[in-house]
Design a protein around this nucleic acid. Structure first.
Ligand code: ATP
Length: 684
DNA sequence: GCGCACGGACTTTTT
DNA sequence: GTCCGTGCGC
């Protein structure tokens, strides 16, 4: 069957209009599960079929998971002609381009990429050097500074404006903050490193300062398509515009304003709404039929998003009739919630629903701690997406630092990290050594002369030799890792008492590294597409399709599962406690829940454990004591669109029956809405 | 100048 | 209950 016929078979009229659309700007704006990604992919197939070379079609999106899904679907319907489609994340694209063109803006192609921790380390040293750390407790710490800087670049807003709007408590330090930021930028260039934001802005800098390069990009890509456009911030929009051939304006963007969940990094749902303002002749296609979920699920999500303060005027309908309403499951505590989920998953398995078609969605990485233990206990294999990253664990970062300095010896952040591991070498000594590196790049070993008498002299010399040896970087990554581990192992065992547990991470790293052929692909990939090793359960089955998916809601965007559990859908978790002060942020949390609920095809379980939030320090000042179901599911919505049950809590968990304390929840009251915000006595 | 011990303030979400 | 930053003693 020809591609054209397939499209006619597979897509509805509106979808076909978009897929067959010819030249010029196109905006597909539609609700969840309406086939946006599917349409986008078929549009690509059609373009290739019409003879556009695949490599001249650029497919972009913000998150790795969405990019992966998009490319996976493309590869399924497209034949080998499409293997060469240029596609991935904005950061991945910028990185590839910069490896080629970085010299034009004063960077070598072997620049390395800073993760969040590296950025913070650099900021910390700058703050120390500038004498801005001591005594002043009110001065922002490194993490806050990193967020502030990132927000500033991502929203293209000057530092002082960000301080004023987001961090008014630091207004007195505005000048110092600006000073640190300037130095931060300066240092990154000296060290030939870029943070994630730099990848985008340095790319922009590169094309705007070099019209000939810009012209090359504009001439090369005939079509640019962006998925999940509502997650795009103005930097990314500018990036797209900078490489778009404006004589044709062949740009297609796809998204859903109701699913905009990245405002914390400068994305705004208005960006997609305003798209036609930037491209006046935009054709707009709206899709309203949902093909993913059953009608009862949509009834719930429609009702919930209709309560938003901004009106998202999309009511989805489905032809998937069903009389199974979403369930709200109340449990007495966190662990009962975990047990319920495990039990349910085992039942589903009986009904031949494979683990790969089930997902548990969480607001924040640690919410699933208890569940993970329970899943392990039930021997249910899972894969965790989002949240904590393996490559950001300190011992893994240690090991990777060896690789970074071998690849880019100017990366003084990694040098410092490794030097501090040496016994007797502290911040001052590390500073002295690293400051000698740039001038002695080609005779690194000479640096040892000033440190011969030190305790760490021999360790330092081995390290210098390893980096100075020009053959090291040409070795296979696994061999480089071998050499690094020879140096690291003794230090590692000294540094961590629990090195046994950490050793298994290092072993995983060795396995992961094995597939890389060169040092640069390895480092790039580990920064831009870090692997997850938090999978557990039976090691025997390593097939991805045999695993349950445990994912943050953010990382679940664009994906779908037969059955979805929303873990801990309680106020303070979603909406998250720290969003509560700001109406815009609370509304974003609503969209987040909307994204979560709309991932479900057939069955949806909304979990509501009764947690005692007052035991967690974090919630001490929130005035919350007992958990309530998320405010986005009010009584009317719950009673109309869901089934609500308590999972039979054990009436007594002791052999003694004692009088109930009035301060504790009365088991007979409605736990969903009863006994809300109790003030803690912290005021006394 | 380094390493350690004690006290404080917090634990979203992604690239 | 933890992680980070400071201050003190060696
Ligand atoms: N015309 C159609 N006929 C049958 N199934 C369809 C059709 N369009 C889409 N689907 C199916 O509906 C599901 C959702 O599609 P898709 O993921 O493309 O939606 P989406 O709009 O991108 O969703 P989201 O906004 O959540 O990312 C997929 O399983 C897809 O195969």
């Amino acid at each position: 069957m020809s591609i054209q016929e397939t499209i006619k078979n597979e897509l509805n009229d509106a979808q076909q209009q978009a897929a067959f659309f010819g030249e010029g700007p196109l905006l597909i704006i539609a609700g969840a599960g309406s086939g946006k990604t599917k349409t986008l992919v078929y549009r690509v197939a059609n373009l290739v079929d019409k003879g556009i070379p695949a490599e001249q079609i650029l497919l972009l999106t913000f998150t790795r998971k969405a990019a992966e899904e998009m490319l996976k679907r493309a590869s399924l319907i497209l034949d080998h002609r499409c293997d060469n489609i240029s596609g991935g994340t904005f950061h991945g694209f910028a990185n590839t381009a910069l490896r080629q063109y970085a010299q034009h803006i004063g960077f070598e192609p072997n620049f390395t990429i800073l993760d969040r921790g590296d950025s913070e380390d650099l900021i910390k040293t700058i703050r120390k050097d500038k004498g801005l750390s001591s005594t002043d407790k009110r001065f922002p710490k490194k993490g806050t500074l990193a967020s502030l800087f990132s927000k500033s670049t991502n929203t293209s807003t000057p530092i002082d404006k960000i301080v004023m709007s987001d961090y008014p408590q630091f207004l007195d330090f505005t000048d110092e903050i600006k000073l640190i930021e300037t130095e931060y930028h300066h240092q990154k260039k000296l060290m030939q490193v870029m943070d994630y934001d730099d990848l985008l802005i340095r790319f922009l800098e590169c094309v705007t300062q070099n019209p000939d390069i810009q012209q090359r990009f504009k001439a090369y890509y005939q079509y640019i398509l962006v998925d999940e456009y509502q997650d795009t911030n103005s930097i990314q929009a500018r990036l797209v515009k900078s490489i778009l051939n404006e004589t044709h304006n062949n740009i297609t963007v796809v998204g859903d304003d109701a699913q905009s969940i990245y405002s914390f990094r400068g994305a705004h749902f208005q960006n997609i709404i305003k798209f036609p303002d930037h491209f006046p002749n935009t054709t707009i296609v709206k899709l309203e039929q949902n093909y993913r979920s059953t009608q009862p699920i949509l009834d719930l999500t429609n009702a919930m998003i209709a309560n938003a303060t901004h009106h998202f005027s999309k009511t989805l309908f489905s032809e998937n009739e069903s009389d199974v309403k979403p369930e709200i499951i109340e449990t007495v505590n966190d662990n009962e919630q975990s047990k319920f989920i495990c039990k349910k998953i085992l039942e589903l398995r009986e009904k031949d629903i494979p683990l790969s078609k089930i997902a548990v969605l969480i607001r924040s990485g640690w919410h699933s701690n208890d569940l993970e233990l329970e899943l392990k206990a039930h021997n249910l294999p899972f894969q965790k997406m989002g949240g904590f990253k393996f490559v950001e664990t300190s011992h893994i970062k240690d090991v990777l630092s060896y690789c970074q300095i071998i690849y880019n010896p100017l990366d003084l952040i990694s040098w410092t990290r490794l030097l501090l591991l040496l016994d007797g070498c502290g911040a001052a000594a590390a500073k002295k050594i690293t400051s000698a590196i740039p001038a002695n790049l080609h005779q690194l070993e000479s640096i040892i002369s000033n440190h011969k008498t030190k305790k760490y002299a021999s360790d330092l010399l081995t390290l210098l030799k390893l980096v100075a040896d020009p053959t090291t970087k040409t070795l296979k990554p696994s061999l480089i890792l071998d050499r690094a581990l020879t140096l690291y192992n003794p230090l590692f065992k000294l540094k961590y008492d629990d090195f046994h547990k950490r050793q298994s991470d290092i072993d995983s790293l060795v396995t992961i590294i094995d597939r890389f052929k060169t040092l640069d692909t390895m480092l790039t990939e580990l920064s831009l597409d870090p692997p997850n090793t938090t999978q557990a359960g039976s090691d025997a089955v390593d097939r991805e399709d045999e695993k349950l998916c445990l994912s943050t809601i953010h990382s679940s965007k664009g994906l779908e599962w037969h059955t979805v559990f929303i873990l801990s859908a309680i106020d303070g978790y979603i909406p998250s406690f720290q969003s509560l002060g700001d109406i815009e942020q609370i509304e974003e949390e609503r969209r987040l829940l909307y994204v979560a609920l709309t991932r479900a095809e057939k069955e949806l379980y909304i979990m509501k454990p009764n947690l005692d939030l007052s035991t967690s320090n974090h919630y001490k000042f929130s005035g919350m004591q007992f958990s309530n179901i998320t405010r986005f599911l009010d009584q009317k919505i719950v009673s109309e669109y869901t089934n609500h049950q308590s999972s039979k809590p054990p009436k007594r968990n002791s052999n003694f029956s004692i009088p109930m304390d009035d301060d504790l929840t009365d088991p007979d009251t409605d736990l969903l809405y009863g006994k809300p915000y109790k003030s803690k006595k912290y005021l006394f």
